[in-house]
Each structure stands twice: as C-alpha cells, then as structure tokens.
Design a protein around this nucleic acid. Structure first.
Lengths: 337, 337
DNA sequence: CTGAAAGCGCTAACAC
DNA sequence: GTGTTAGCGCTTTCAG
C-alpha cells in the first residue's frame, strides 16, 4: 500500500542507495539503471517521504508566516506573495495568526520549533524581545516583512513609510491643498504610525506650513472604525480642512463613510488620500487615491530572502521597496503646481 | 546545541523510553522519575522533534487548506477559521493557493503527499475527478468547505445556497419589491452560481411573479468588475427594476460603484442585497444589506471534522450552516408585508 | 516501573 | 557504478 524506497529498490533490482541517488539527481549511476529506477518509480507511484528526508537533512521545506491580524486585506496580499515565493521553490508555508496576543505568539513559536520549520517571516508587527530571543535559539533565518526592528539586526522588507507619507502629503499640496489633516495611528505605533506622522509633519514644514495639533488625529489602530471616529474628531478640531491624509485605506474608507453621514462630499468638500492600495481602494465610491505598497512582491521577496539565507548561511540584505501614488478620484485639484 | 531525547535521558539518568513516556503522558513511571525528567527537560529547554515523531507515528499534525483564489476576503475568513480550528488542537495549516489552475493543484497535491500531511480542506472550488482520485490514494481525510461535490461522497461544510438565495429574494419582496433582478454567476458555476439562481427563480415563482430572462444577468465570476459591468447590462435589459440580488458582496460593491456613475441612487432608486457579508459590506456607502455566511465558524468546523476523521477513522457528517440576513442600508422599503 | 532494541524512510559516508 | 551500513530522533514492543 504505502510504497517506500525499499519497494522501489527491490522492484528495480538495485539498492536503496541507488534509488536515493537517482531521485536526488546525484549522478553516479548508469543511464540504464536510472531509466530502470525511474520506470519502477512511475509504475509504483512512489513519492519520497519528505518527513523521513527532513529527519536526516534537517530541512523541512516549510516556512512560517506570522501575522497578528489575518482580518486585514493587507496581510492577505503579503501572504499571497509569500506563498508564491515559497511554492516557486518547492517550499510550503505554515500560517500563524497570532491575533496580537503575546502569549499566542510564543505558543506558536514553540510549535514551529517542534516542527523544525526552516525559516520565519514575521509580518507587520513589532518583534518583541522574547520572540527575537526565542527565534535566535532556533537557529533559523528570520525576516521582517512590512515592519522592522529598532533594536535587533534582523533583515527586513518594507517600504519607507516616512518617505511614502511625505509623498502623499506632498501630492495633496501639489493639488493645491494647504489645510491638510492627518488621521492615523501616531507615536504609539513606532513601526508604522510614527514614521507616517513624521512624513506628514516634514512635508508640511518643507512647504512652509506650520504643523498644527488641531489637524492631527491619532487613532488606536489603522481600522475602518478609527477612520469613522477620526473624521468626526478632526472636523471638530479644525473645520477648515480641505484634505486628509489617512494612515491606511481602511481608515480612508471610514472617513468616506463618515463624510456621507455628515453631509461632506468627497472630494468636492474634502479630499482624501489613503495608504496601502488594498482592494477596497478601488471598490469604494469615490475610488480612493492612495499610496501603493507592492505587498505581494514584498512577500515574495521576503520568501526569497529566507531561502537565500538558508542556502548561503549569511544574513540577507534589508530592502526598501518603492511606494507609488495611485491616482483615483478622492482628491480634488484646487490648483496645480 | 540541539538537545535531543538522548540528552534528556542521560542528564536525567533514565532511558530514552522513559523520557518518551513522560512527554507523551503514557504513564508507567513513578512520580519521582517524572518530576526528575520534567525538570531536566525544562533545564535543557528540550523540545521534541516533530519530524522524528511524524516519521514513526505517521502524523504530522499538519492540515492543508486549498483555495483557488487567495485574493478574496471570503477565502480569508474561511482560512481564519481553519487556522483557529487547527491551532486549537496543536495542528498547523499549510496554505495552498492554486489560482484556479488545474496543473498547479495537482502539483500541490503531490507536494502535500510528500509532506505526509494529515488531511485536506478543499475550499470554494470544484473538486475535479483527478484531485479526488489522487487524494483517495493518499488515504487521508478530505473535507469540502463552502463547496460540495455532486459526484463524490465527500463530507462538506457549507450553507445551503439555494435556500439562502431564496431568503434574500424573499426579503426583497417583503420590502415591497416586485421587479427584482439578479446579477450573479449562473449555471456555468454549478457549485455557487446555479443554486443561487435557482433560489432566485423559486422565490419569484412562489410569490407568483414570472421569471423574466431580462432580469437575469449571468456573470463570469463573483468579482467587483462583474458587478460593475453587470449593472449596465441589467438596466439595458430592463430599466424598470427596483431591486437587485447580487451573487456576492463584491458584485454588490461593483453594482453600487456603477450606479454612482450612472446617477442611480442606492437605495432610493435601486435596492441591493448582497451575499457573503464580507468586511467590505460594512465599509461601503451605503452599508450593504447582505446574506451572511458564518465563514470563520465553517472553517473551524471543517478543521474539527478533519481531526475527527483522523481519530475515528470514519467519514464525517456533512453539515449545512445557517445563513442570516444582515440588514444595513442598501434596501429601501417600498411597503412592508 | 524501567530499559534494550527494533524500526519509521531516508541520506551519506564508506567500501568494493 | 553500485551496495552496505550507520545513523537522523523518536515510539513502541518486549523483557525484566
């Protein structure tokens, strides 16, 4: 029933070593025996047992993808890229949804360790000290995806948030906007919130516009609800605003949803630029102008890096991916410059 | 460096058999040795090697989740549930994104076979004969999620699409609508399209309303674009329509997007009911009234079923999950009945 | 209650 | 070119 290398060897009239050689393309056998073996493999429908292989080779051809929040389309895009990168080279990916809970993450790490997975891609979340240290002990490659660590020297793949935020705000200004607000997670989120806020402030300063606290709304996260609530807070603080930079597309969607309720027209009364270019950006009305991150590509690259590190044994080079502004219909041109 | 069962045995002054017994809670050892072993395990930071375990026990504690299209939020919700169900019992899930290509699916199946995964959850796609036969040969449990097979006796978890579609259309009628269209994949998609179309037709008939081909638009898939194009076709075929049943939330979003361009107000001029209750349903304007499928729960259940089958060795019972209509703001009440 | 030993299916020296 | 054999780390009889 279950056919093993032994069965193949016996049926082909050779030793298991020879079979092993041909399935691993190692050479050291005649063309004739090779064909013989191959034929038997085919007849018997033999599939090498990767578990047994893993036991001796210490390679499971499995990569773990750890995300805090599988709900977000952002994670999905990332995951898609990772999966593609993995499968391209005969690896598979194990999914770990940690739901932001620290305990669950350590839990997962243990499980992954027991499974002797080959590497870890840690996505869009803070790499806590505990995690880092535990992973170090596992002696497997780790790369950070859409996040980075201020403390540990771990290779990462991401876009430069500060730069991208700067570009978004600059775009608004080029369209003639001067009274620009921001609704985004702020300093509390050092990974994504802080740099986006900094980019916003820097862009304003560079254009000689004073930064006013009244135009800043710091949200808890990057979710739809944050945007909904955020807009109400923002117009309360400063009703003169003509444009808003949203820290994420979800926030932007929330802002748009809220504006409808408040009778604010987008983009006629209020222009909005988002961040992420998720699928929802094109599905809402008006279609959202936003800063695109090449998420799928980034995921794929992260995977390549893991495999690279596995093969070469040295740390991969961190990488910034370029952002891009996708123009749709949520920003009104006041005047062009 | 790498600590194995031998190291533990040596350090604890017992045999590896004893260590194995305590880590597997098999009993047959004194309280004293147990504590001794446990302590050493802790000190050494020993983690059993699941690969080695898998080799002898033929259990890898890994379940594969196969979906054709990871892009959709639907897949995401399903996946979330599956992941939860798996992790709950110390299993992990390997993700397979087949992108609808048959070759890639067989490819994956081979890979999964080599990895000796414990079971397969096959989601929202047609189970082709090739796949089925191959999986049969693997001798591992298989369950269909959000899909079913008209040909093979494979346990499934899904909602009854026909019933749910019926309910959606009936809802529209209870709100006073009589001229109701449908934009959805049709007979070509036997799994989801056909039953939804049937539900639509049946509901109409039951209320004594003739089914008109002019009110039916059959789309290629269930995507946003299908909805956008679909609406234009529909109003061309019949401009009198007051409500539309969309085969998916994505289609519904497309319809709404299209209506804006066409100057049709939702729900004032046109009511829309969607299907799936994805996250986008609450994020668009107006928030979408839709038929909810408990996707995450379904995913979790599918996982439970796999594990069940693994433990009991017999086929699980197929399960229909209940649908539910989520009322939001995309349907106008003409008159209540 | 505990240990010795035979594998699980495969790879990788090491012989011939 | 090809076969023999010693493990990889663990579970599981079988003795004692």
């Amino acid at each position: 029933m279950k056919v093993t290398i032994k069965d193949v060897a016996k049926a082909a009239g050779v030793s298991i070593a020879t079979v092993s050689r041909v399935i691993n393309h190692l050479g050291g056998y005649s063309e004739e025996t090779k064909n013989q073996v191959l034929q038997v493999i085919d007849e018997l429908g033999y599939q090498p047992n990767q578990v047994a292989r893993g036991l001796v080779s210490n390679r499971t051809r499995t990569i773990a993808f750890i995300v805090p929040d599988l709900t977000s389309t952002l994670a999905l895009e990332l995951l898609k890229g990772v999966e593609k990168g993995a499968h391209k080279k005969g690896n598979s990916v194990i999914l770990c949804n940690t739901e932001s809970e620290g305990i669950k993450t350590m839990d997962y790490l243990k499980l992954l360790h027991e499974k002797r997975i080959d590497g870890i891609i840690f996505a869009s979340n803070e790499l806590k000290k505990d995690y880092y240290e535990y992973i170090q002990k596992m002696h497997i490659p780790l790369v950070l995806l859409a996040t980075q660590s201020p403390r540990f020297a771990v290779p990462f793949v991401k876009v430069d948030d500060r730069l991208a935020a700067y570009a978004a705000v600059e775009y608004l200004m080029k369209k003639g906007h001067r009274k620009i607000g921001i609704i985004s997670a702020g300093e509390d989120d050092g990974i994504a919130g802080l740099p986006r806020l900094e980019g916003y402030q820097l862009a304003l300063s560079d254009y000689g516009i004073p930064v006013s606290e009244n135009r800043i709304v710091r949200t808890k996260g990057f979710h739809f609800e944050d945007g909904r609530i955020g807009l109400r807070r923002l117009i309360q603080q400063d009703s003169e605003i003509t444009a808003v930079f949203a820290g994420s597309d979800d926030i932007a969607a929330g802002i748009i949803s809220s504006s409808h309720e408040l009778g604010i027209r987008v983009p006629e009364d209020l222009s909005i630029i988002g961040y992420d270019n998720l699928k929802i950006a094109e599905m809402i009305v008006p279609p959202l102008t936003t800063v695109a991150q090449p998420l799928a590509e980034m995921g794929e690259k992260a995977c390549d890096m893991i495999i690279d590190m596995l093969e070469n044994g040295k740390l991969a080079q961190s990488l910034y991916f370029p952002h891009k502004i996708i123009e749709r219909k949520s920003v009104k041109t006041l005047f062009s410059s």
